[in-house]
Amino acid sequence: MPVPEPALSVRGVSHAFGRVQALDNVSLSVAPGSFTALLGVNGAGKTTLFSLITRLYDNVSGEIRVFGHDVRRRPGPALAALGVVFQSRALDRDLTVRQNLAYHAALHGLTRAQTWARTEGLVDRVGLTEQIDTPVSALSGGQARRAEIARALLHAPHLLLLDEATVGLDVRSRREVLGTVRELVAEENVGVLWATHLFDEIAPEDDAVVLHRGRVLATGTARDIARGGDLASAFLDMTGLEPAEGRL
């Protein structure tokens, strides 16, 4: 049987801002329909990696492929196959949820009929039906996050990147956002790369990648990385961080 193409394949990627080495020979992969946690404290290089995958920055060393499409050589098909939720909010605050989604749909070439058909279902899925015509500025943090997830899914991507998607949310909203994403993995076979520094968001059976100071320190299931103990302790051992630095 042919081996399925990884949803995301990152091989030997390095990136520097001047003299600051943000990523150093990073390799990881996300299988289709899997939840992969990218675990690292602030400054580990998670956002830089996301920016390289989404072509906000150019990757000059190494290779990044989305379902086999090299993001440098064929950015169009690669970007069409992925959805992304950035760490900082990227919705137009003055537009309504529906208008934000319509704008995103147009930017991905969806017809009006496709936009209408997808919008209602997705907004319902993330529990924002009542807020669909509400300006984003009037939404709570959790609602805005869920609107961003709906937007990222509008063009039916098979890979979803979420960069610290629960930062700044209360416990209930965090649980809702994470629950929505895990449902997508289970029910729609969407591959997810979930960047976080919060250990309680990672289940033992999840694939995980530990990124620290631009380097990958460990890959495998969270259970394997934890080596029979708890993930937080294993992470601190690996990185040499104090608990306060690890934001536990």
């Binding site: 098909p77 930017l107 070439g109 969806l110 017809t111 063009h155």
Partner: peptide, 23 residues
């Protein structure tokens, strides 16, 4: 929603329409 079709000239016209509409 075939991505190849979405990225064709009709898709581009939709993107142009969306950008003008938002502006």
């Amino acid at each position: 929603m075939n991505p190849e079709r979405r990225l064709g000239w009709r898709g581009r016209m939709r993107a142009l329409e969306g950008i003008v509409w938002r502006e």
